[in-house]
Design a protein around this nucleic acid. Structure first.
Lengths: 152, 152
DNA sequence: TATCATTGCATAGCATGCTATTCAACAGCT
DNA sequence: AGCTGTTGAATAGCATGCTATGCAATGATA
């Protein structure tokens, strides 16, 4: 078939692939954020986890997994590094012997302002020449792509 | 200052952060692509590398680094796994004892069509309900964010 | 109550990425 | 030729993510 042979021989151009661009963009965001929060002793996944804990301290690992949409094993490893770095404590949950409450240390609480400012600065760098309308449109398109991949 | 204290106490909402959404979107793209190309014996970074080699076989590692915009160490490790999996061969470059020409195996050449179809399918899943105009706009916005982060 | 399924978490193993370091080969110059 | 700086690659070490397992604590039920 003409259509199939066209598809088969047409070059796959990475600059026109949403997935390729998404990967490159996410790596640049992560790299930029990491540079900005490294002086605070934080790494990107730790910052993301802290966002949830600054919002509500003392939640369980499984609740963090739900809120941040990462796999349980990923979160377990991130929490281990955060505990090692003195950012969180795992406390026993008196109501359920399986779960532990994740609590912020004073150190982690003190990082809230500088860390969120750093993240805002990174977003601002990426969207520097975007109009307000373009920013909203961009966020909306990303949310739609995320929702579409969650479904199918 | 009012402005600063507003910034300091305003919640950082991850759903409104371009970087957070970019990370989540890229992970979903990678996961979906991985599921689709796993039956072919490929992983996402291997596919990305194959894209460059299908376009031009026999280029050097440093050229791959330039074309794919990843760090040299990352590419070296990806190539080692691809060699292990029988996708490429490293051949000596007669003109320069430092560099090696990366050549595709017949196996890798045969994967071009099914792998690019899989990637197209993943992009289609993500952008299923996007109009053609929205697709173009989305790609353009991502390219601009990438360019902005490359600069600053 | 004894059994079976579910839930919360840890661990193993692997792929991607990054930074930092090291080394050999090359290139340019004196 | 001999230095010196540059370039191409490999390696070490670490953070993120994922899948697959395993295990103990709970819950549900016959």
């Amino acid at each position: 078939m003409l259509f199939n042979s066209y598809l088969s021989t047409m070059a796959f151009q990475k600059e026109r692939s949403a997935g390729y661009l998404a990967n490159q963009m996410a790596r640049l965001f992560a790299k930029g954020l990491h540079e900005r929060i490294r002086p605070l002793g934080l790494a990107p996944a730790q910052f993301m986890t802290l966002l949830a804990l600054w919002d509500e301290d003392g939640i369980s690992q499984s609740e963090l997994v739900r809120r941040l949409d990462v796999e349980q094993a990923t979160m377990a490893n991130t929490l281990t590094r955060m505990e090692r770095d003195g950012l969180i404590e795992r406390r026993a949950n008196p109501d359920d012997g399986r779960s532990q409450a994740i609590h912020l240390t004073p150190t982690a609480k003190a990082l809230r302002d500088p860390a969120t400012q750093a993240a805002r600065a990174q977003n601002e760098t990426a969207l520097a020449d975007f109009s307000e309308g373009e920013r909203q449109a961009f966020l909306a398109l990303m949310r739609r792509a995320i929702a579409a991949m969650h479904k199918g």
